[in-house]
Amino acid sequence: MTWFETLKMACLAWFEDFKADFILNFIEDNRWKYLTTGLGNTLKITLLSLLIGVVLGVIVAIVRSSHDSIAGEMRPGIGKFLLNLANGVCKLYLTVFRGTPVVVQLMIMYYIIFASSRNGVLVASLAFGINSGAYVAEIFRSGIMAIDAGQMEAGRSLGFGYVATMRHIILPQAFKNVLPALANEFITLLKETSVAGYVTVRDLTMGGNIIRSVTYSPFLPLFAVALIYLALVMFFTWLVGKLERRLRNSER
């Protein structure tokens, strides 16, 4: 036998193995469905928690940056008191949710706070969303603080109130500035949801793990899971890059 034939045999044998492994892990008993249902759940959790995180984060960022920029000049009164109070609550939120592991938060949510709920996807979305909000808040705060103070003054001098100036003038610019950081947070979030299995949610990782535990063949299910995450992240990175270019084009 020549070396070429040896190589050919080896390749064929490997391919046969791979085929058998593939059939065992994905085709038999429709096991691929563990991955597709899992992917569906992962996407659901990611998108829902992104939504919660951004809404929460923007609110917290506005409260925090407003407090830092105007509370010092406000006249004493109910407005100043409320702003100080809101700022305190936001700071506590940031400290607690950035200071504890997301898996622990997830389990507290599922086994204690929403112990009566069996809707794991929803509870997980809430847990990841609230956690992500803390990071998004700091991203947005840095974006707001980076806007020149003259922009707020120009808005106010035209007769806009503080909130209206934020809405029409500051936030649109801040959003553009923080888009790359926000995309990064989104990618982190997508991968972070892989611990949802801790509270029995059948996400993508859990799906791969179930296949592995049935077939006792770890290689293919886990690599398939990894590949799907990678493809998702690459797709979203491309999408954000496109959005970024479009926003930037509008300025020149």
Binding site: G150, G159, Q173, E251
Partner: peptide, 20 residues
Amino acid sequence: INIHRQKMGMVFQHFNLFPH
């Protein structure tokens, strides 16, 4: 004050146009 500022235009040293 917002109502009154509508009647007082202001021009700044650094223009402060809205870049977006």
